[in-house]
Design a protein around this nucleic acid. Structure first.
Lengths: 185, 185
DNA sequence: CCACGTGATGTCAGTGCCTGCAATCACGCG
DNA sequence: CGCGTGATTGCAGGCACTGACATCACGTGG
């Protein structure tokens, strides 16, 4: 992060990073598969935490609720490092290659959540959709949180996003059914 | 695609591709910014079609309906080339770097849709969520479509996915509200 | 104190992606 | 034929990444 801040991501070579850490380029590639991966260290741990939280959700709760409470449980983690999260976010959104990596990490999280939901007895398609919808809420909520000038909590933004999604889906369902009834038959 | 089928994506160099097209590596990079981009040629056109379809949706329809009818309008396009779509899909899901590219294309589509919805008067957060929810439905539906041994239509799979999402969100809302009533106050 | 095994680190050479720059080519026009 | 313009090429080089092998650090048993 120091180096990226100094010269920018593109102008920082892997050799630079390794040197700053007192190592060789070759050794860098033993720890990270990629130049990009250096910004995503510990992501497996993050996935594990979220998945465990999903698994820990009460059986009675609906799939989406399980996913969202798991998302909310990451709040403490992020709340402590909002400044860092902001800088990291800015860096990533400034570089397409980094966004790509972030997106695939998100999808691997989605897959992991989907699997966990299936083990809870959710059907395959519903599990996928609950995972994806949950992460869509997370993305939107996280974004609002990161750019919130009033520094309100992540949980608050997640709940707001969730209500928005409900409104969007339910609203569409109502008018969609009406249109359908009108249109067919 | 020929070359990728013959030797695999990883073992096909850009020089190979250029040679097969009767050109030089250097020229390849004038047409494509990337080796990966060769598999996503014309994606801007696709985005344009979907965005136009969203824009063309009646004002009265809800945001999510606008997005979904736009997704359905791509059905004809894909239906004609299901075998190609399947091979391309298999190739992409076998290579993480290609998945990354596909994901970022999806997100750029989501952003474009979000913008269009905002112009229709949808609020920013609702627009994001309608776009993301719509694309989640598209991803799940498309996946089912591509792997459907009975070759049923894309539209059918999209509608099914949509009903699943409704169930997931509405189901969660009901039990979530119940839990909330029980839990707080 | 030494030999030895093991895992981390370093060296080196090589491949392939990608870029900048300058030369060359194709071709339509006066 | 000469000329301008846009497409193509050749060349040199930077950087990401890999494989094979050498070396180092260090704990263990003799």
């Amino acid at each position: 992060m120091e180096l990226f801040a100094e010269r920018g991501y593109g102008k920082t070579t892997v050799e630079d990073i390794a040197a700053r850490a007192g190592l060789t380029e070759r050794t860098f590639f033993r720890y990270f598969t990629d130049k990009r991966e250096v910004l995503f260290a510990g992501s497996e741990l993050f996935v594990k935490q979220v998945v465990d939280a999903v698994r820990a959700a009460p059986r009675s709760s609906a799939a989406l609720d399980a996913v969202l409470s798991a998302c909310e449980s990451t709040g403490d983690f992020f709340e402590e490092r909002r400044p860092f999260a902001r800088r990291r976010n800015a860096l990533i959104s400034a570089h397409a290659e980094l966004q790509e990596r972030e997106l695939i990490k998100m999808m691997s999280l989605a897959s992991a959540i989907t699997e966990t939901l299936k083990q809870r007895g959710t059907s395959s398609a519903a599990a996928s959709l609950a995972a994806e919808a949950g992460l869509a809420i997370f993305r939107v909520g996280f974004d609002q949180w990161a750019r919130d000038p009033r520094d309100r909590s992540l949980v608050l933004h997640l709940r707001a996003a969730r209500r928005q999604l409900e409104a969007v889906v339910v609203g569409a369902r109502k008018s969609g059914l009406r249109a359908h009834t009108r249109g067919s038959s």
